[in-house]
């Protein structure tokens, strides 16, 4: 049955009516209209749905809404906008690091949480951090360069 569930997303509280067992991804996309997080597999395997919850990169497709009431959820939209992109988003623009771009939400959100913990990573560290995120277009080289660029700018 649907319950009233309060989610703190991008610094604001929102109340949604949702089955407590339903996954956070659907509440974000369909109830809150946040399209940064994407449905890729629904199985926790690809990373397209990644959001940051209390600082940790988390796969919203396998995270029930009831489990994250009271936690701080940040989506891609919470970082920056086209007019005022976050430095990490700007680094992806500068490196032209997207083809179809469907995976990029997961890349940026995973990298964001990673850079917060490791501000000065090696290239291998970055690859390691992104290793569970899949990209089918083969944009990997540019994604790594974008994360490197953001880290070098001290702007993870």
């Amino acid at each position: 049955m649907a319950d009233s569930i309060t989610l703190n997303v991008n610094g604001q509280d929102h109340t949604v009516q949702a089955d407590p067992d339903s996954m956070l991804l659907y509440a974000l996309r369909n109830d809150l209209g946040l399209h940064g997080p994407k449905f890729g597999c629904g199985l926790g395997q690809c990373g397209a749905c990644t959001v940051i919850i209390d600082g940790a990169a988390t796969r919203s497709c396998v995270t029930p809404v009831s489990a994250v009431q009271g936690n701080k959820i940040v989506t891609l939209e919470g970082l920056g906008t086209i007019d005022s992109p976050h430095p990490l988003q700007q680094a992806f623009i500068d490196e032209q690091a997207a083809q179809c771009g469907y995976c990029i939400n997961g890349m940026i959100m995973t990298a964001k949480a990673f850079l917060n913990e490791n501000p000065d990573p090696s290239r291998d560290d970055i690859k390691q951090a992104l290793n569970e995120n899949l990209c089918r277009c083969g944009t990997h080289m540019r994604i790594v360069r974008a994360v490197e660029r953001a880290a070098k700018g001290g702007q993870g």
Partner: peptide
């Protein structure tokens, strides 16, 4: 520079999904 990338890296781009 590609026209679509700023929207795609900020969640403002509208995919069919």
């Amino acid at each position: 520079r590609r026209k679509d990338i700023p929207g795609k890296v900020t969640g403002q781009f509208t995919y069919i999904q």
